[in-house]
């Protein structure tokens, strides 16, 4: 989908839709078992940012990283999640995965 100078692919649209849903859940006080809504919102912003900066060819690696980060949010606090995400991206670069 093209919006002005920006092109959004399906995954980005789903992420934006998810951000809307999570925001609604926070607003109305709905609870998602095992997930913290604030952490989820933070992760979605991170994912959108990374997705926007990475070329589409690396989508698969990004998906694996996103799932790991999502499930680590059960155990880790916000700062640790951001650290994990950034360190993994740097390591991906060093190992020439991306």
């Amino acid at each position: 989908m093209k919006l002005g100078p920006f092109f959004f692919d399906t995954k980005e649209l789903f992420l934006i839709l998810l951000a809307g849903l999570v925001w609604l859940a926070r607003y109305f006080g709905w609870e998602i078992p095992l997930f913290d809504l604030q952490k989820l919102l933070l992760l979605i912003v991170l994912f959108l940012l990374a997705k926007g900066l990475l070329p589409a060819i690396h989508n698969e690696n990004f998906l694996i990283l996103a799932f790991f980060t999502l499930f680590l949010s059960f155990y880790l606090v916000e700062l640790q999640l951001v650290l994990f995400f950034v360190i993994t991206l740097i390591l991906f670069r060093f190992l020439k995965v991306i």
Binding site: I64, L65, L83, F84, I87, L91, F92, V97
Partner: peptide
Amino acid sequence: KIFTAIFISILVT
């Protein structure tokens, strides 16, 4: 490579 990177990052984090 991907899983090694993820494992190392968890440790480092």
